[in-house]
């Protein structure tokens, strides 16, 4: 699979799961896999993982905690209680009808108002703070180019292009007072990506360091020279790098090195 350009990984994975519904497509993939050792091996690995996951499913958590059903019984009692003391069915229907009517009226009014109201960006695409306090500079914008220009200016470094369809971003302000900046993106598929901007003075470790976060892997690199601090993220199959002080031409070799070291 690693060297095969005929078949995308998710198609092969779906085929292995028996989830390719179109007969012609299914047969075309089967014919390819028969003649492609890489794809055949990849398909076997997917199958092995699924079998292992099925064993995990069968072996994990077969008992409930002590008192589980007693607690459930008490909660079901409360539901029964509320049912017997609640409004009779006719009254309930009447109340529902009134509520539905009210919602419909309010909804129609809101739609009418929105037609005449000016458009407003509710959620900024990028919110970022860099500086020594939580009230430091920040930008709210839905324009990625503007955000990149602003970041470049603020950080005195060129910000790598981010070729993603971004839905939103938020600031993790926890470390803003330490002079760190964070950009958190939610990609359209729901993937969470982060870029962390850290001044070189904050980087204590040298060498390439890999630390496991709760959900992501982080790589940090500090070559120990002025202006060569770098932080890289790997999320899913993508790697991202950011630097507070490194010009793009120096950043890219590091990015390539990290991408080389990250498994494909």
């Amino acid at each position: 699979m690693a060297g095969c350009r005929f078949l995308e990984a998710d198609r092969l994975s779906a085929w292995t799961d028996g989830e390719v519904l179109d007969l012609a497509e299914r047969e075309s993939i089967a014919a390819h896999v028969r003649g492609c050792p890489d794809c055949e091996a990849e398909s076997n690995r997917v199958r092995t993982l699924r079998l292992r996951m099925a064993r995990y499913s069968a072996s994990s958590a077969t008992t409930v905690p002590a008192g589980f059903f007693r607690q459930l019984g008490e909660r079901l009692d409360a539901v029964d209680q509320s049912r017997t003391t609640s409004t009779p069915a006719f009254g309930r229907r009447l109340r529902w009808s009134a509520a539905v009517l009210a919602v419909a009226v309010v909804g129609a009014a809101a739609i009418l108002l929105s037609l005449f109201a000016p458009l407003r960006v509710v959620d900024p695409l990028v919110t970022m703070k860099v500086g020594s306090s939580l009230s430091a500079r920040h930008l709210e914008s839905n324009d990625p180019d503007e955000a990149a220009r602003w970041l470049s200016g603020e950080l005195g470094a060129e910000v790598p292009p981010i070729n993603l369809s971004l839905l939103g971003a938020r600031l993790d302000a926890a470390n803003a007072d330490k002079g760190e900046g964070h950009l958190h993106y939610t990609e359209q598929s729901g993937k969470l990506l982060s870029l962390r901007i850290i001044p070189r003075s904050r980087l204590k470790k040298t060498g390439l360091l890999r630390v496991l976060g709760e959900r992501q892997s982080f790589w940090t690199m500090d070559k120990g020279k002025q202006g060569e601090s770098i932080v890289a993220w790997e999320s899913g199959q993508d790697s991202f790098v950011a630097s507070a002080e490194t010009p793009l031409d120096k950043l890219l070799p590091y990015a390539q090195e990290i991408a080389r070291r990250c498994p494909p």
Binding site: G207, L208, L209
Partner: peptide, 28 residues
């Protein structure tokens, strides 16, 4: 959302290590 702070990125006193290609045997 569980982002870790930079201080949490330390290795709990362990030395940083290089990433090596984990291939002690067939993946399956």
């Amino acid at each position: 959302v569980g982002f870790v702070g930079f201080d949490d990125l330390s290795t709990n006193g362990q030395e940083p290590f290089d990433i090596v290609d984990p291939k002690p045997g067939p993946e399956s």
